[in-house]
Amino acid sequence: MSTKEEIVSQWDHYKWGKKLEPVFGKNILIKEETIECLKNSREKTSIWKITISNQTETFPVVLKIFKPPLKENHIVEINMYRKASSIFQEFMPKLYWIEESVNKGEIWMLSEFLPLIRGQIKLTPEHLYQIIPTVAKFHALTFEKRILDYKETLDSWVPLYNSVMMAKERVLHIEKTREILDLSVNNDILREKIEPKYDILRKIYSKGPIFFPELLEAGQCLIHGDLHLQNICGKFDLSNENSATIQFIDWESAKYAPCWYDLVVLVELLIDFRKDWHKKAEDIRSNCAVLYSHEMRKYGITFSEDPVKLLKMAYLQRALEKRVLNHLRRVMRGEQSKLLNRYLDKIELWGKELDLY
């Protein structure tokens, strides 16, 4: 993991103060006492908040350090900033500088600091209704054939849900899920959860890996892939429904995939985590799905399937192809899983509703 001292040393060595002058003016200095580590992910990436000054004003800046060897998701995020920021600038922080080959292969990226909505507000469903129009506007840019307008920029590095590699991964994950389901009925920790649903799960998993072709037929686009609260920045004014300014950070999971996947993370997983929302879940789910469909219609995109049905399909597809496996493994390791019971209950309930068994 990098240190404050190393950041100051590299700042001086690479003369970033000089390189940032076109953005912030002359005489750019780093304020050493303000350097703060925001996140360190298994020593593969670290994220820092630094403050710089032009001796008149101060500016918060994010420094993200990618350590070699770079994973595919790191390459995706770097390319989102380096190659695609001109396309999606409205939806993401500004890139200030990328320095390659720091410390024998590290990539250091300096970008705009945006305030997270988490910590600013106590999130209500009404806030979701202000976020969803931005999600729809982002999706509409690359929906289906529209992505061809950006083929030269995106083609070589954006992961494709329908690619041979990702299709093989889905098959492998489902095979491993079946194996763990068989082990689970003999596992003291998992038996109580799995045994009552075992036959249903085995029947459903026999239908994969694409459980709902309707999702692909509904359309694909570039999705963020991880739209939880810690990746959403912005400002709200609930008295003015058109006033929200929303942007997204942490683009490592971006891919060309079914558009409804982003709604799963933004809406349905949030409902799962928010117990105080469970009683009104149907209303929240319906309002969000219908609003998203309405917003997409503004850009000439319509869905033939019921929006709530598509959201439920996307939730189950996403859960079945990988998430159930991840959470089963977590519990078998003796760790906690807040989502496994929700996944299993919804697979049983919605699986029947959507004719999976």
Rank of each mutant, 00 (worst) to 15 (best):
F24E: 06
G25N: 13
K26F: 02
I28E: 04
L29S: 13
I30G: 06
E32A: 09
T34M: 14
T34G: 04
E36L: 03
C37F: 01
K39D: 10
K39A: 14
R42N: 15
E43V: 06
I47D: 07
W48F: 12
I50L: 15
T51H: 07
T51K: 11
I52H: 04
S53E: 11
Q55D: 15
T58R: 05
P60M: 05
P60F: 00
V61P: 00
L63N: 04
L63R: 07
K64G: 03
K64V: 06
K67Q: 05
K67R: 10
K67T: 06
P68F: 12
K71F: 07
N73K: 11
H74G: 03
I75R: 07
V76E: 01
E77H: 01
I78L: 15
N79G: 06
N79Y: 14
Y81E: 00
R82V: 02
S85Y: 02
S86H: 15
F88C: 11
E90C: 07
E90D: 13
E90N: 09
M92S: 05
M92I: 05
P93N: 03
K94S: 03
L95S: 03
Y96R: 09
W97N: 00
W97Q: 04
I98V: 15
E99A: 02
S101W: 02
V102S: 06
V102W: 06
K104Y: 09
E106C: 02
I107E: 04
I107G: 03
W108N: 10
M109A: 04
L110H: 03
S111P: 00
E112S: 07
L116V: 02
Q120H: 11
Q120D: 11
I121F: 15
T124D: 11
